[in-house]
Amino acid sequence: MFQRLPDAAGERVSFTIDGRVAEALAGDTVAAALMANGVVACRTTPVSGAPRAPFCMMGVCFDCLVTIDDVGNRQGCQVTVRPGMRVETQKGAREAAR
């Protein structure tokens, strides 16, 4: 599993994952922040419910889909963590906001 080096410097950003308080370094993507906070799977597949985790970390595979601030199906590897951001792991597919 991904672990941040103990001497990592930088501004800390506070956000929530499924309602619990978490921290990341400013500039981290949501996918990287999830892994750094011990989140193993960020979504489940809509048909079988199989867990999925960030894979490519460059926006190609869509395995890092999460809900961010009530907007579903966001690619966590393409979004930078912001202070106060609410990240939720997804269960199956989520309809896009209209």
Score class of each variant (00 low, 15 high):
77 C>Q: 03
55 F>Q: 04
60 V>E: 15
5 L>F: 13
32 A>H: 12
66 V>L: 14
78 Q>R: 13
95 E>N: 13
64 C>P: 02
49 G>H: 11
83 P>Q: 12
42 C>V: 15
44 T>G: 07
10 G>Y: 08
18 D>P: 00
81 V>S: 03
19 G>K: 14
96 A>V: 11
91 K>N: 13
96 A>H: 10
41 A>E: 08
3 Q>E: 13
12 R>I: 14
86 R>S: 08
9 A>T: 13
8 A>Y: 11
43 R>S: 05
54 P>V: 03
63 D>R: 02
67 T>G: 03
45 T>Y: 04
74 R>K: 12
60 V>K: 01
1 M>W: 06
60 V>G: 01
88 E>F: 06
29 T>A: 08
54 P>H: 04
89 T>V: 10
12 R>T: 15
40 V>W: 08
80 T>K: 15
68 I>T: 04
8 A>S: 15
51 P>Y: 09
39 V>S: 01
54 P>I: 05
82 R>I: 02
64 C>E: 04
38 G>N: 09
33 A>W: 10
16 T>L: 09
78 Q>K: 12
88 E>T: 07
91 K>I: 14
91 K>Y: 05
88 E>I: 03
48 S>E: 00
71 V>I: 12
49 G>I: 12
43 R>M: 07
92 G>F: 10
85 M>P: 01
9 A>S: 14
49 G>N: 06
20 R>A: 15
24 A>G: 07
68 I>A: 12
76 G>K: 06
18 D>F: 14
28 D>L: 09
66 V>C: 10
90 Q>K: 09
71 V>G: 00
7 D>I: 04
45 T>F: 02
98 R>K: 11
59 G>N: 04
87 V>S: 01
91 K>G: 02
17 I>H: 01
24 A>K: 08
35 M>C: 04
